[in-house]
Design a protein around this nucleic acid. Structure first.
Length: 519
RNA sequence: GGGCCUUUAGCUCAGCGGUAGAGCAUCGGACUUUUAAUCCGCAGGUCGUGGGUUCGAUCCCCACAGGGCCCA
């Protein structure tokens, strides 16, 4: 180690300033540990208990001891345990020290005394820093101040950290560092860890639900020749050997429907989608959805499944279908089925007076919007304008869970028309807290109609320069030419669902590594 | 794309025309039951970057970059 040499050169040591000084101090301690013949980065440690398990073990011992008479009753202690974790705080007192240890499950205090450990073994305690990862072997006791603690017989350095942790009291506040170095957020802020665990539990309970309902989980291509199945701008890439341009998928929809054609009658995929669009509090260029398709079901069936699924996940992850109020963010949200179904046309009429069946062309809809002070983006297609009306005038009112039902065909190129209408399709979207949670419809399985809808989208791309218009996928049309049974399909954003359950307002609090600009 | 706020020690934050301060962490010392340990002492900063105004800029102005919040 060169830093040992540096230690002997006071000039260099004095020159080391700021962060570099902190690092050098810690490297010097690592060298001192090595000088004792101890590896500060050993390969493994046979932990016997987590912090939580060790605490429970002691509490049990305490209860047992309360039934006996004598010294054991006054000072209950457990068998020897080995715990491991990160040093979060140190309270040194010369020949004794208290160290707060945090592991992946919780925290526990350790108590090191020179006369318990022996003079030589205790020296290691003085070489510990906040942030180091250590193992502690000893009995679990309760200190005079009442804290359950592992009384160290042996302390093992498992990893010497050479950079300091954020402030132990204020945690990590800097949002930029929280997102760019999420590990620091996880170490310092309990909420970050809580959200990470919640995300995992949401996905797990979602999988459980789908499997319990007989769905088959699949994985379909992420690199695709046509970015179809949704209205969004894709990321582009290139396969060198095939010398072929490819795209990152913007939806899993069309591949999953091919599997329906193939006879997998209940199918779902949980996976990452990529959309080349801006970032804000609820958009990230990559995000995770579940899409599911069920043969012989229609959108009404899917609606019931969604409210069952979402309320089940809430119950599994929080213990209740009623999400509690989050001060300054939202009232309590009751996800208990059934959720009210609102006819889209009626709801828009109620909120704005606009009847989209009457204002059926761009000019009249734009005029009606201007009349009501709704911003009209010049050159927009009719469907885009109506989407604007819905998102600004209707969605914000849908704080408690609701379904908006029956959309105009222009906005829904993959959905089946209602039997009694050429203009309306069997589609719904679920809303909670004023934002879209899911999108679902009875799938269009008429190959002739489907081709016309794609053509319509292509026309929209040309006429209105709508880069996000859905793309014609011949391969998909070929598939449904062979016959796709009547099918109900669903797409639901998992990050947004987790936001909802967590009571977070930003998707960046849920994504462990949200997209960031270059530094 | 537009507006507003923000960037100062490793972390959390003050300061706002006369080239910087606190708490925690670090470092040295005392301390064998503390838990934001305590007590004494030291050290640590191109004040986001680049221009400009000024005798003098962390502070005022402009541009750029990162972050945040609104709007589109």
């Amino acid at each position: 180690m060169t830093n040992e040499d540096q230690q002997e050169q006071p000039n260099q040591e004095e020159q080391a300033a700021g962060e570099q000084k902190l690092i050098e101090d810690r490297l010097a301690k690592a060298a001192q540990i090595r000088a004792k013949g101890i590896d500060p980065y050993p390969a493994r440690y046979d932990r016997t208990h987590t912090s939580i398990e060790a605490t429970k073990l002691f509490e049990y011992a305490e209860i047992m001891a309360s039934n006996v008479v004598g010294d054991d009753a006054e000072h209950p202690k457990t068998e020897t345990v080995r715990i491991a974790g990160r040093v979060m705080a140190r309270r040194g007192m010369g020949k004794a020290a208290f160290i707060d240890l945090k592991d992946g499950y919780g925290s526990i205090q350790t108590f090191a005394r020179q006369n318990t450990m022996g003079d030589e073994a205790y020296e290691i305690v003085n070489l510990l820093d906040i942030g180091d990862i250590i193992g502690v072997e000893g009995s679990v006791i309760r200190t005079r101040r009442g804290e359950v603690s592992v009384e160290a017989e042996k302390v093992t350095v498992l990893t010497k950290a050479i950079r300091p942790l954020p402030d132990k009291w204020h945690g990590l506040q800097d949002q930029e560092i929280r997102f760019r170095q999420r590990y620091l957020d996880l170490i310092s802020n309990d909420k970050a860890m809580k959200n990470a665990l919640l995300r995992s539990n949401v996905v797990r309970s979602m999988r459980d639900f789908m499997h319990d309902h007989g769905f088959i989980e699949v994985e379909t291509p992420i690199l695709v020749p046509v970015a179809a199945g949704a209205q969004a701008t894709p990321f582009e890439t290139h396969h060198n050997q095939l010398d072929r341009d490819l795209y990152l998928r913007i939806a899993t929809e069309l591949y999953l429907k091919k599997l329906i054609v193939g006879g997998i009658e209940k199918v779902f995929e949980i996976g990452r989608l990529f959309r080349n669009e801006g970032l804000d509090h609820d958009h990230n260029p990559e995000f995770t959805t579940i899409e599911s398709y069920q043969a012989y079901a229609d959108y009404k069936y899917v609606m019931e499944m969604v409210e069952q699924l979402v309320s089940y996940i809430a119950k599994e992850t929080t213990g209740s279908m009623v999400l509690s109020e989050v001060e300054g963010v939202r009232p309590s949200i009751d996800l208990t089925p059934p959720w009210p179904r609102l006819d889209l046309r009626e709801e828009i009429k109620k909120r704005t007076g606009i009847d989209f069946v009457v204002t059926r062309d761009v000019e009249s809809l734009a005029a009606a919007m201007r009349e009501r002070g709704i911003h009209v983006e010049a050159g927009s297609a009719w469907g885009r304008l109506l989407d604007k009306v819905i998102s600004t005038e209707v969605e914000p009112h849908l704080v408690q869970p609701h379904f908006l039902v029956d959309y105009p065909v222009e906005m829904s190129p993959l959905a089946k028309r209602k039997p009694d209408s050429d203009e309306i399709v069997e589609r719904f979207e679920g809303f909670v807290m004023g934002t879209e949670l899911c999108n679902a419809f009875t799938e269009l399985n008429d190959p002739v109609d489907q081709r016309e809808r794609f053509d319509q989208q292509e026309k929209q791309r040309l006429e209105f320069g709508d880069d996000e218009a859905d793309r014609l996928d011949e391969d998909f049309l070929l598939a449904i030419d062979h016959g796709m049974p009547p099918t109900g399909g669903l797409g639901l954003g998992i990050d947004r669902l987790t936001m909802l359950i967590a009571g977070e307002e930003s998707i960046r609090e849920i994504l462990l590594f949200p997209a960031m600009r270059n530094t």
